[in-house]
Design a protein around this nucleic acid. Structure first.
Lengths: 231, 231
DNA sequence: AAATTGCACTTTGTATACAATTATTGTTCT
DNA sequence: AGAACAATAATTGTATACAAAGTGCAATTT
């Protein structure tokens, strides 16, 4: 097991933020597993800092919902259940629809151009069949749309909700049979936005989420079956 | 000036949570004003605790967006601008619509009954013309709908977004000319939900938010004009 | 008089110390 | 052997200590 988190530290970020980023990444990638306890001294020793920055980082993770606090017992990594993922996706469906609708109204020339390019780059990314490259192209494309809304709060919320599914993001990308659909879905969203067709854009965005939901739910059921049979 | 926050403390809540609730309430009610610095020792002395729980509370307020951190200068209460409120309301419009749509599908007998009662109680509350009573009835009504969705994440997000407007919640309630409209809007939502008419419910919920937005924006412009002329 | 430097003071960032609670282990009694 | 209990260790919650950075004011220089 890779025992040390990489504390890649911006020299001028407070330690609490470095720790926060480090722990968050560790949770989202699954390096820290659901149910695992976050014990302060251990983390402090491991990261080479005192308990103070660890505790402050945990407070933020707590509010973000990535860890849960048990009184006098400390923090542990929050469980991801099928229900909690469905809840997140239900909200994301609504917010993604809002995103593309707002983008229809507010996107400017430059972003439209970027979006076109991102669509094309996503298509060529699928041809590499390398999940990492495809995932990156996917994120860039979505980022352009989200930013085009100009709504800071919305941007922050969507990013936070996306993070909750970080661990599963490769799943709906790995399946090569789905690549053509993904390209089509993105194209539909793109074309609706340039036509300022809000309804079409919202429909396409929702479809996109629905398909993601299917593969994510499929995967989490596999995991659950696996852990059940382990016990 | 009332100099001491009321640290109403549940004996068994950690101090950090008591402080968090206290400071959050103080910010939301306007007792701590936008731009005001939150200095740790002062708050610690004022609340009779050490800096540790204060700092941990601030970390949560930071993630919630109620305070912003300036490096090596500490926390200050976040400014509420017209833009930031519009952003919040834009998201809320989408999430409130989602709420009532889900409620159409998922509300059970008991909650339907509660909702009916809450509508009636809101109507009689308007007759008292006491803003506090009306606001309370309003919150109860909305709570029933939000809870009926059964979506924990949605519940948490809506509550958080509502809080951002806490300071302005009385405005759209004070105006007595609007009371009949409010009662009508609530009734429309209620009736759409019992008919399982998602579209109608969503339309009614959005209208409801639009009207709130108008009075809130009106008020924040008044405030801004006032502070401008003060300078 | 204006600008600049130096110095005390304030405040944050981090580490450590202590108290209170919970978990664990070993021992005794039945 | 198993249950009950006491002693011990581990861990969180809170307070305090110390270092580094920032701020403001006054004395000094130009």
């Amino acid at each position: 097991m890779g025992d040390n988190f990489d504390m890649t530290m911006d020299e001028f970020l407070p330690l609490r933020d470095v720790v926060f980023n480090t722990l968050r990444k560790a949770i989202l990638t699954g390096e820290l597993k659901p149910g695992e306890r976050l014990m302060e001294i251990h983390l402090a020793n491991r990261l080479g800092v005192s308990r103070t920055p660890i505790r402050e980082a945990i407070r933020k993770l707590e509010l973000e919902g990535l860890v849960i606090m048990i009184p006098r017992r400390g923090a542990e990594v929050a469980q991801i259940t099928e229900k909690s993922l469905k809840d997140v996706l239900e909200v994301r469906r609504a917010l993604d629809a809002l995103c593309v609708e707002l983008a229809c109204d507010r996107i400017d020339e430059e972003a439209t151009e970027q979006l076109k390019k991102a669509c094309e780059e996503f298509e060529s990314a699928t041809e590499t069949k390398d999940a990492t490259i495809i995932a990156k192209a996917d994120v860039e494309l979505h980022d352009i749309i989200v930013k085009a809304t100009g709504n800071q709060r919305l941007i922050q919320l969507i990013n936070n909700l996306s993070e909750q599914m970080y661990r599963y993001r490769f799943e709906y990308i790995k399946d090569e049979n789905r690549h053509d659909n993904l390209v089509d879905e993105h194209r539909m969203i793109y074309e609706s936005i340039v036509k300022h067709d809000k309804e079409g854009a919202a429909r396409a965005a929702k479809l996109h989420i629905d398909n993601q939901e299917k593969s994510i739910i499929r995967q989490i059921r596999l995991e659950q079956d696996k852990t059940r049979s382990d016990v």
